[in-house]
Simulated scan of single mutants.
Amino acid sequence: MLAPTSTLATELAPGSVALVGAGPGDPELLTLRAWRRLQQADVVLHDHLVGPGVIDNVAASAERICVGKSAGRHSWSQEAIGSLLVQKARAGLRVVRLKGGDPFIFGRGGEEMDVLLAHGISVEVVPGITAALGAAASLGFPLTHRDHAQSCVFVTGHLKDQRMALNWPALAQPNQTVVVYMGVTGLDTITRELQAAGLPGNTPAALIHRATCPEQRVFPTSLAALPATARDHAVRPPSLLVIGQVVRLLARHSVL
Rank of each mutant, 00 (worst) to 15 (best):
L2T: 09
A13D: 02
G15M: 10
A18D: 05
A22V: 05
R33T: 11
A34R: 07
L38H: 10
Q40D: 08
V43N: 04
V44E: 02
L45I: 14
H46E: 00
D47H: 07
H48I: 06
L49P: 06
G51W: 11
G53V: 09
A60D: 10
S61F: 04
A62L: 01
A62D: 00
E63N: 07
E63A: 14
R64L: 15
S70K: 14
R73F: 00
H74R: 11
S75K: 03
V86L: 09
K88G: 03
G92F: 07
V96L: 04
V96N: 03
R97I: 09
G100Y: 03
G101I: 08
D102E: 05
G107P: 07
G110E: 00
E111C: 02
E111I: 01
M113D: 00
V125E: 02
V126L: 00
I129V: 15
T130H: 08
A131F: 13
L133W: 03
A136Q: 01
S138T: 10
S138V: 03
R146T: 05
D147M: 05
S151T: 15
S151H: 13
C152H: 09
V155T: 13
T156A: 04
H158T: 08
M164D: 01
L166S: 07
W168F: 01
W168S: 00
A172V: 08
N175G: 12
Q176I: 12
V178D: 01
V180F: 15
V184P: 05
V184L: 07
T185K: 12
T185D: 11
G186A: 14
G186I: 13
T189C: 08
T191Y: 04
T191I: 08
E193Q: 08
A197Y: 03
N202L: 13
A205V: 07
L207K: 13
T212V: 10
C213V: 07
C213F: 00
E215S: 12
V218Q: 11
F219Y: 15
P220V: 03
S222E: 04
A224D: 00
A225H: 07
A228P: 03
A230V: 06
R231Y: 07
H233D: 01
A234G: 06
V235C: 05
R236S: 09
R236N: 06
L240F: 12
V247T: 13
R248S: 06
L249T: 10
S254V: 13
